[in-house]
């Protein structure tokens, strides 16, 4: 009983803090990270956000729906990459499967930024429980959209979210104008 009471009180405290934060800003901030991609190159969230919004999907090899979502987003990415959209395929497979992930990604020829999270640091930091879970992070580093699960057709709705957050003009042109 005492534990449950403690838990309840702690929840209230947490809720207080959360509500204070929510009152201050509309969207939660994305946790910064540094991970290696499938080629062994270090990638940081900060460096990605300098180039445009990031849609980061957590996937692993046994997750059929994760792979289906990443496949389905290919034409969406082709259309919107000029406007600065970046898609990150975040593999949370265990370290023992790293070679399989690399081989899979190479044969898939995904144009995405394919990151490896063998220690599940990003997965834990973002509180990801189920796969696929994806986040759209705007250039301020705010998580503006969360997508849990995937079924055919979701890519159209995800694209609609992208369009809300992408600049009207291609990112390169914007930079030139600046």
């Amino acid at each position: 009983m005492k534990t449950i009471l403690n838990f309840g009180l702690s929840l209230c405290l947490a809720a207080g803090v959360v509500s204070a934060v929510e009152a201050k800003e509309e969207y939660p901030l994305a946790e910064p990270f540094t991970l290696k991609d499938v080629r062994g190159v270090e990638v940081t969230l900060d460096s990605l956000l300098k180039q445009g919004p990031v849609y980061m999907e957590c996937w692993d090899l046994p997750c059929v729906n994760c792979i289906a979502e990443l496949d389905a987003l290919l034409p969406v990415y082709d259309t919107l990459k000029e406007r600065g959209l970046q898609i990150v395929a975040l593999s949370v497979d265990k370290p023992a499967d790293e070679a399989r992930v690399k081989a899979f990604v190479r044969s898939k020829k995904w144009p995405y930024i394919c990151l490896l999270d063998p220690q599940n640091k990003v997965k834990k930091a973002y509180g990801i429980i189920i796969k696929p879970t994806a986040y759209l992070i705007n250039q301020k580093g705010e998580i503006v959209y969360t997508h849990i699960g995937y079924k055919k057709g979701d890519e159209k709705r995800i694209k609609a979210e992208f369009l809300k957050w992408l600049p009207e003009q291609p990112a390169a042109e914007e930079k030139t104008e600046e």
Binding site: G16, V21, K24, P28, L29, E31, A125, I129, I143
Partner: peptide, 15 residues
């Protein structure tokens, strides 16, 4: 953390 949040930006995420 709440006290600190009064002075600077605090981020809380959860599931």
């Amino acid at each position: 953390f709440r006290s600190l949040s009064l002075a600077a930006e605090l981020s809380i995420q959860g599931v």
